[in-house]
Simulated scan of single mutants.
Amino acid sequence: MHLTTLLTAAIVPFLGVRAAMLRFSCSQLVVDRLDPLVNPGQVPSPHLHQIVGGNSFNVTMDPNVNDISQTSTCTSCQFTEDFSNYWTAVLFFKARNGTYKRVSTVGNGLGYSASNGGQTVYYISNGAVTAFKPGFRMVVGNPAFRTQAEARTNPALQFTCLASPMTRSGYRYDFPTDTCAGGIMVTVRFPTCWDGKNTDSPDHQSHVAYPVNRNCPSTHPIKIPEVFYETYWDTRPFNNKALWPADGSQPFVWSFGDKTGYGNHGDYIFGWRGDALQRAMDANCNSDLIQDKLNCPTLKSQTIVNANKCSIQRKVKEDLDGWMKELPGGGME
């Protein structure tokens, strides 16, 4: 199901459907080689990530040790009661001479261009939902995938070649094969059904599931908000095809060495303070789709300028700004 269909379904309270859609900017918190879900305690982690959200993000994120909604002192997200952490892999450009350059994220052009990168986050409901519990976390996608058949098992992870910030068509599971005038948008949509018992699972996925024919399966009967990321990767500086591979193939690669794009994935750790997220879902809050209006009176918010001020120091000291002979961590294609 494409994003436009999802949003249409999510904002139809006038048809008698109980619906909510929070849409807000989360500025860049840090770009670092840490992954407290898949590689807890490991410094550095095998590949690079871009992280947004609360500033208590760290190498372990053990829910039994602290509650990130209480230990964070700021958030790079516009809703100030949201100290969750959201992260994805990092995109790189591989030039014809074999060197790599990190691609920056930019603010979503639909009202969030003041953001210093990061991503746009959505929480969507279509009917009553149960907000996540403290300690909840999940992962979607698989960095080992390299075929479209594998990628289609996670149909909500897609790429869009942006002709403009308004582009919402032409979804695909792999990297675009031509230059994109507005950059590349990567979307990550998480499952919306929960087993009602576990806030995590060994693979960080089994405790959640996608609905079947819009209904949650009996194994995962509890409807939860849909968490959705949109990340704008600024590939515009690399649109000169003289820098692309001599055979004309697309030049982008994920930080874990995937040049197909099929290994797209995302990570999430819940960190809303108190009952803030449940209040917003119960109040059917709906953000404006175009303008930067956080239309949810029950929640506290901050400007994007203030959200930009929340950041943390990189734990792994390595040059991420220049041209590199190999990917950080030595990821192989």
Rank of each mutant, 00 (worst) to 15 (best):
H2T: 14
T5C: 00
L6S: 10
V12G: 10
P13V: 13
G16A: 11
A20Y: 01
A20D: 01
S25M: 08
V31K: 05
L34K: 01
P36C: 08
L37M: 14
V38E: 06
G41R: 09
P44M: 07
S45T: 10
Q50G: 14
G53A: 07
G54N: 06
N55L: 09
S56F: 07
I68G: 00
S69T: 10
Q70I: 11
T71R: 00
F79N: 03
Y86C: 01
Y86I: 10
T88R: 07
T88F: 04
A89C: 10
F93T: 07
F93H: 13
N97W: 12
G98Y: 08
V106S: 03
V106I: 14
V106D: 02
G107S: 11
A114E: 13
N116A: 15
T120Q: 09
V121R: 00
I124L: 15
T130F: 03
P134W: 11
F136G: 01
P143K: 04
A144I: 05
R146Y: 04
T147L: 05
A149I: 15
A151S: 12
R152M: 11
R152K: 15
L162R: 11
A163S: 09
A163K: 15
P165Q: 03
M166L: 13
M166N: 10
G170V: 01
R172A: 14
Y173P: 01
Y173V: 00
A181Q: 13
G182W: 01
I184P: 00
V186T: 14
C193R: 00
G196C: 06
G196E: 09
D200E: 14
H204I: 08
H204S: 09
Q205E: 14
C216G: 02
S218W: 08
H220F: 14
I222Y: 03
K223D: 08
K223P: 15
I224S: 02
E226F: 01
Y229F: 15
Y232C: 05
W233P: 00
F238T: 09
N239D: 12
N240Q: 11
A242P: 01
L243D: 13
D247R: 03
Q250R: 12
P251N: 02
T260W: 03
G263N: 00
G263V: 00
N264V: 15
F270T: 04
R273H: 05
L277F: 12
R279S: 08
R279F: 06
A280T: 06
D282R: 07
D282S: 13
K293T: 12
K293C: 05
C296F: 03
Q302A: 06
N308W: 13
K309C: 01
C310D: 10
I312Q: 02
Q313H: 10
Q313C: 09
K317T: 12
D319K: 03
E333Q: 08
